[in-house]
Design a binder for these strands. Structure first.
Lengths: 153, 153
DNA sequence: AGCAATTAGATTGCGCACGATCTATTTTTG
DNA sequence: CAAAAATAGATCGTGCGCAATCTAATTGCT
């Protein structure tokens, strides 16, 4: 266990805050680019997954995005209402809902294609730093998720 | 401008998603530690700032946390309702609302003191990696915020 | 077969985030 | 000094996130 010092509670010391601030800032940077496509950022990442693999269930999509049905169900309803996807119960297992892209949903991909490069530029990080940053974040996420539930809770 | 390739839209390529996932995962790791204190994560970071410097205005707090009054006003009302802070108009400038810690709000700091070390351990990153990660995130945030508004929008 | 346990998704409630708008108070300016 | 502009915060509406609960379908067990 670490030694505790009085500056442990300084905001600028916190990795969590750097993470929280960066995440919101990056999401905000996406906003003007996604707005013409009629997507929010969470809707965009859901579409990314569906563009990779059509016909996933809500559960599979949730595993990929680390989101549960409480978040996904209304989000997917909005995408369906926007005409980008269809939601249908599987006949093989009526508990599962399969998400299929519509023609319009597939077509949207082309309009999204320039977004990553545009954001990459706004980030202003050289590729090596960026890849290391992404790697560090993934390691962090994995470490916490694989934690045997609250070591010092 | 970067060259665009078809894999630019792969979820696992996106720094933004690593960031989005890590931020939510870390916040989730805080939740069981903050719950006994009666705080949410955004409330916790607000308290961190106030523990550093009591008597800030809503605007100053917002500048520190990158949050606006639409988010802070209700959050601060909840903290006030919990008896941790008081909100009062400044007599020098009636537009400003000053946030003061109550005795109870100041006392809560002691109970929060062990949280950072606990989370640090859950992150499972060695200090060098962690500091570099935090630095990279701060650079990223600064780069985007200092961007002359949508270079390739 | 029949009943319990599990699983997938939907629903509800609360607390952020954030754009947009509104009110009240200063500050600036002609 | 009076009108206009700027500023601080509050309010409202929408869309997440996530815990908790509910329903319906499937699986497991005896």
């Amino acid at each position: 266990m670490q030694n505790t010092s009085p500056n442990d509670l300084l905001l600028d010391q916190q990795l969590c805050f750097a993470l929280y601030a960066a995440s919101r800032t990056v999401t905000a940077a996406y906003r003007p680019l996604l707005e013409p496509l009629g997507l929010t950022y969470p809707q965009y990442v859901a579409m990314l997954v569906l563009w990779e693999r059509d016909g996933l269930t809500v559960r599979e999509l949730g595993e990929r995005l680390l989101l549960d049905s409480g978040t996904l169900t209304p989000l997917l309803k909005r995408l369906e209402h926007a005409g980008l996807i269809v939601r249908a119960r599987r006949q093989s297992d009526e508990r599962e809902v399969e998400i299929g892209l519509t023609r319009s949903g597939r077509a949207l991909r082309a309009r999204a294609e320039k977004i990553p490069a545009c954001l990459l530029q706004q980030c202003g990080l050289n590729p090596v730093v960026l890849v290391r940053l992404r790697g560090g974040l993934n390691t962090l996420t994995e470490n916490i998720l694989s934690n045997p539930q609250g070591v010092c809770a």
